[in-house]
């Protein structure tokens, strides 16, 4: 299995894993799962606008995802219990995006590729976009790591140490929008959250520091990409969902380990 398209698929998955691993850790630590969902769903609206306006898809996705992430960020900072509002926003963006795509006449659109990803059709140009985005996310997180961590642990402690929790939240928002734009082609809008949440959840069971958990999440993500591509190749299953399925199986297998850790 060394066909060029498989290698490109693997590299695309690798790109997503190195961005989604550490970012996903923050999503898990800060209980922002809804945040990933809303941003990823909004990406479909971004796709629709890009197609209608003839822009590169990654650009439109990034813009709308960022707008949604900022909105969600502002909403959740203002009030507690905005769950319903966020749900309405996320699903409206998804639905309106799907409706809008149907208006993009003349463009033959494979809707499922945006919903579930089309990792096997990743081109060399896509790879450049994916790696640029992924490395940007990684660089951003490494650069802000200490502040992000402190703001996540306790916003007051961060403020007292001269770290602005609001600025760190903005960093995460930006990273999330970038990751969504990067991962859309690979796992699709509906499964991006899974790549953010599942690998960190698996890595938690074997980690004793935040850094180890982040690195673990990247490794689990890469493993899921390899396993998912292999399953897709041998069982002829859709690649994106197969990757997430492998990650989910890894999570199930990690549960006894987590129980052991708690039992200690």
């Amino acid at each position: 299995m060394t066909d060029p398209f498989l290698i490109r698929a693997f590299l695309a998955g690798l790109g997503v894993a190195i961005a989604a691993g550490p970012l996903g850790c923050f999503v898990v630590w800060r209980r922002m799962a809804y945040f990933g969902d809303a941003t990823a769903h909004a990406a479909i609206l971004g796709v629709a606008l890009s197609l209608l306006m003839g822009m590169p898809v990654a650009f439109g996705t990034m813009a709308i995802a960022l707008a949604m992430a900022l909105t969600v960020s502002a909403l959740s900072a203002r009030a507690h219990g905005v769950d319903a509002t966020l749900g309405v926003l996320a699903h409206s963006a998804l639905a309106i995006g799907l409706v809008a795509i149907s208006f993009a006449n003349g463009v033959r659109v494979d809707l499922s590729s945006f919903l579930f990803g089309d990792i096997l059709a990743v081109s060399s140009e896509d790879l450049v976009v994916i790696f640029t985005g992924a490395l940007l996310v990684l660089a951003l997180l490494v650069w802000r790591w200490q502040g992000l961590l402190l703001a996540t642990l306790n916003p007051e402690l961060a403020t007292a140490a001269g770290v602005s929790p609001r600025r760190e939240q903005l960093v995460l928002t930006l990273a999330l929008a970038l990751t969504v734009a990067v991962a859309l082609k690979v796992v699709g809008a509906l499964l991006i959250s899974a790549m953010l949440l599942v690998p960190p959840a698996v890595a938690r069971s074997a980690a004793n520091t935040p850094e180890r958990m982040a690195v673990g999440a990247v490794l689990v993500g890469i493993g899921a990409v390899i396993g998912g591509l292999w399953a897709s190749w041998t069982l002829d299953t859709p690649a994106g969902p197969s990757i997430v399925t492998v990650a989910a199986i890894a999570f199930a297998l990690s549960l006894p380990l987590q129980a052991m850790r708690r039992g200690r």
């Binding site: 630590w29 642990l153 402690l157 004793n208 935040p210």
Partner: peptide
Amino acid sequence: KLAIDATLPIT
């Protein structure tokens, strides 16, 4: 207090 989320491992 320091309410550390159970998902965040830190020594």
